[in-house]
Computed example of a mutant assay.
Amino acid sequence: MEMILLIAAAFGAGILNTVAGGGTFLTFPALVFTGMPPVMANATSTVAVFPGYLGGAVGFRHELRGFDRKRLLRLVGITLAGGLVGSGLLMVSSNEAFSLVVPFLLLGATLAFLFGDRVRQWAAEKARGVSSEGALGLFLVSLYGGYFNGGLGIVLLALFSLWGMTDLNRMNALKSGLSFLLSAISAAVFAAAGLVAWPQAVVMMLAATAGGYAGAPLARALPKPVVRGIIATVGFGMSAVFFWRLIGPS
């Protein structure tokens, strides 16, 4: 029954990530609910949804080629550094400490997704006449992504808006490429540290890939408000459950 739950969660995550994002809201809680320690669950969840980022990066390969190579290499270096530090922080976090911050991370990621369009619009307005790229901003976002992957795409898009970027295709291309590299370094660190539960991770990777394929027609058919409502419901529900686990009776 536990494996069925994980397969269903990963399949749903693949669909959500293809339609709009938010797959972490399903994979991470499902792993925790099967009894896996939170730190290992977060690491395994990162590996489980990892293949989807490669598909996105390949799909935007034309737009990625349009970036200046030196600029792209600089952004890659910052992203890998931030992801490495974030992954390292997770490795040294106790399950108790991680459990303490998880409800806030889930809630923050849900709010970021729900109000992502407004955040990007606000960032774009603040960025008028601004074209500089802040290394510190990307490093901090990458650190967050290495520690906890939820809502990473929305935060990256908002950051790109603050840099003055306006072409959404180029922004999504850069987001997909950097997210893939960030997840790759995180997965490598977690694997080397023995934090990944491989039987669950491999099964969930296959299910997430199948869900991503199945999500393509849904992405075309479902109205955006419906998708946002589904993900917001899942996100707020999971946040409430983890807050209850934190403050409720043991």
Rank of each mutant, 00 (worst) to 15 (best):
F113P: 03
L114D: 03
F115L: 11
G116K: 03
R120P: 01
R120W: 02
Q121S: 13
A123R: 01
A124N: 11
K126P: 05
A127I: 06
R128S: 03
G129Y: 13
S132M: 09
E133P: 10
G134E: 06
G134Q: 07
A135M: 14
V141C: 08
V141S: 07
L143H: 11
Y144V: 05
G145C: 06
G145L: 03
G145P: 04
G146K: 06
N149T: 12
G151V: 04
I154H: 05
V155A: 15
L156T: 02
L157G: 00
L159G: 04
L159W: 01
L162A: 06
M165E: 12
N169H: 15
N172C: 00
L174W: 01
S176H: 03
S176D: 01
F180R: 06
L181F: 12
I185P: 02
A187F: 03
A188F: 03
F190D: 02
A191T: 14
A191Q: 10
A191G: 06
A192G: 13
V196C: 10
A197F: 13
Q200V: 08
A201S: 15
V202K: 12
V203N: 04
M204W: 10
M205P: 07
M205R: 12
A207W: 05
A208M: 15
G212Y: 02
G212T: 12
G212I: 10
A214E: 05
